[in-house]
Computed example of a mutant assay.
Amino acid sequence: MSEKIVVDNVYKIFGSHPEKILDLIDKGHTNEQILEETGHAVGVAGVSFTVEEGEILVVMGLSGSGKSTLVRCINRLIEPTAGKVIVDGVDVTQLTMDELLHFRQKHFGMVFQNFALFPHRTVLQNVAYGLEIQRVDPNTMRDKAMQALTQVGLKGWESNYPSQLSGGMQQRVGLARALALDADIMLMDEAFSALDPLIRRDMQDELLDLQERVQKTIVFISHDLDEAIKLGDRIVLMKDGRTVQVGTAEEILTNPANDYVARFVEEVDMTKIMTAESVMVKPSAIAYFKSDGPHAALRKMQKAGISSIFVRRDGKLIGMVTADDVAKIIKTDAKTLESILITGMQTVTRDTPAIELFPILAGINYPLAVVDDDGRLVGVIIKGSLLAGLAEGMQTGGAS
Rank of each mutant, 00 (worst) to 15 (best):
M280F: 08
F264L: 13
E267T: 12
S278K: 10
N258T: 08
Y288G: 00
R242S: 12
I286A: 02
E250F: 05
N255H: 15
A276N: 04
H295L: 11
D314Q: 10
T248L: 03
V265Y: 01
F289G: 00
A287Y: 01
V244T: 12
K282P: 01
A327C: 06
A327E: 15
A297T: 08
D333Y: 13
G319R: 03
A276P: 00
S308P: 03
A257Y: 02
I286E: 00
V265G: 01
K303V: 15
A296Q: 10
I309R: 04
L253A: 06
A262N: 12
G293L: 05
R299L: 10
R313W: 10
A257G: 05
D259R: 13
I306S: 08
K290M: 08
R299T: 12
A262W: 01
K272W: 06
P283F: 06
K328W: 02
Q302M: 12
G247M: 10
D333N: 15
A327S: 14
G247D: 08
F310M: 10
L317I: 09
V321C: 01
I330E: 12
T248N: 04
T243G: 11
S308N: 14
R313K: 15
M270H: 03
G293C: 02
H295D: 13
V265D: 03
T332F: 11
I273E: 00
V246M: 05
G319H: 09
E251M: 10
L253T: 05
K303E: 13
V326C: 04
K290G: 07
A323W: 03
A285Y: 06
A327Y: 07
F289N: 02
D324G: 09
N258P: 07
S291F: 04
A285K: 01
G305D: 09
N258R: 10
D292S: 07
V279M: 01
A262P: 06
G293W: 04
I273N: 05
T243D: 08
V281F: 03
A285F: 04
K331Q: 15
G247V: 09
K272D: 11
T332K: 15
R299F: 09
R242K: 15
A287F: 00
G319L: 08
M280S: 03
E267L: 12
